[in-house]
Design a protein around this nucleic acid. Structure first.
Lengths: 223, 223
DNA sequence: TGCCCTCCTCTAACGGTGTTAGAGACGCTA
DNA sequence: TAGCGTCTCTAACACCGTTAGAGGAGGGCA
């Protein structure tokens, strides 16, 4: 046998990330992962303590480049800067299959600290108290992950469900007039209203508008 | 043997809800569920097509009383009304173990339609366009589920993790000054800052403030 | 009475899962 | 040469969701 180079934990995590993209979270088994690596399943336990912690590493890897530090440029609006950051985070989540599900329930790891510190600093610099800044980061993060989760869940559903079925039961317009009006409105669009990017942007806009209001109040109070 | 009354699908769903509260989503297996019902595992397949759809029913059951219709009373502020509704939803989610995880990825079922219709109608009545109202409901929902997910994940983590460990590595105040300031600030509180209810309220306040801004803009445009 | 039929439950089994125990091969160092 | 840490292996355990197919209980009907 040609002497194969020994496996690294990074190799395992890499392969897991790729396998996740290929078969989704349900299909990601240690045996399959081991097979892809040309190794037997229990071998993985030498590199990784647990499947759960393997997924922790995968989550960290998935957000790796999102943690790049991109400081506020002088003269740039902090709110626009924050919106851009949150959007990048959202796009990173929905770009990789089941990324949101893997990420949900993982504490921010050590590697995320510089990025969080940066946002914290920017918001404090914009006039927020540290507590406000912290709560706001959390809120934006929760919105991002909730939106990504919802989007990916719907995508999975669409892939599973029989597509020949129409747009649902076409509910009674008398009982649900607003639903009907909405459906009529969305029927014109080519994507049947499933523009999740715009949907996310709407939510993010609301939250950032709220932040602007809060900041105005704080600044007024302070000065 | 005393003739046992035949099982209903509602019985199965009920037992699943209770078992979920007891052992969490990981521990909820069909065999265990069958044992609790005094029945063999394959029997469940006569009442339920699938574990996945069983969880759908569980999700529906978990939100059942949250779908009660509570119309806007005359003179009541629509924003306060909406905040109240979202808060009830959040509380319902965090009150039951793993409810958020079960709910994530379930399309709103038929039973949720009256409630959604009601919120849709209230927002349209407040001056929003149907599209705005729809996107806003979605946004608030995503925030609620993201927050609940985060809270329950952290709770699970705390239950699992060795509690003797301190509050983490106490990071370098030079590299992470804002983190340090925040930690110092939160150290005074009895709960070490883990007041998730207040954290959720903060996010919800931001979003509702954003909605107020948007409504003001719409009304200005319209009138 | 005898028969059928539908409801509901059973046992047996299949192929999969995460995980542990323990043996063994490779290469470096003394 | 002996020893030791590193890395991988086979065998096995207890569990999982799910299917196949048999069978009992009870009501409706000839």
């Amino acid at each position: 046998m040609a002497a194969r180079k020994a496996l690294t934990r990074d190799d395992v995590v890499d392969a897991a990330v790729h396998l996740l993209a290929e078969v989704g979270l349900e299909g990601l088994s240690l045996r399959r992962l081991a097979r892809d690596l040309g190794v037997s399943a229990p071998t993985l336990y030498w590199h990784v303590t647990d499947k759960r912690t393997l997924l922790d590493h995968v989550a960290e890897r998935l957000l790796l480049d999102q943690w790049r530090v991109t400081p506020l440029t002088p003269g740039e609006d902090w709110a626009e800067w924050l919106r851009e950051r949150a959007t990048v985070q959202y796009r990173a989540l929905i770009a990789h299959r089941d990324a949101a599900r893997v990420l949900a329930g993982n504490r921010p790891t050590e590697a995320a600290m510089p990025a969080v510190e940066e946002v914290l600093g920017t918001l404090v610099g914009a006039g927020f108290t540290p507590a406000q800044a912290f709560a706001s980061i959390q809120a934006v993060g929760n919105l991002v992950i909730g939106s990504a989760l919802e989007y990916q869940a719907e995508r999975e559903r669409d892939a599973t469900t029989d597509r020949t079925a129409g747009d649902g039961p076409a509910h009674d317009p008398d009982r649900f007039p607003h639903h009907s009006a909405l459906a009529a409105l969305l029927a014109d669009r080519p994507d049947h209203g499933a523009d999740h990017d715009a949907l996310f942007r709407h939510g993010l806009d609301l939250m950032i508008a709220g932040l602007r209001v809060q900041q105005a109040g704080t600044v007024t109070h302070a000065g």
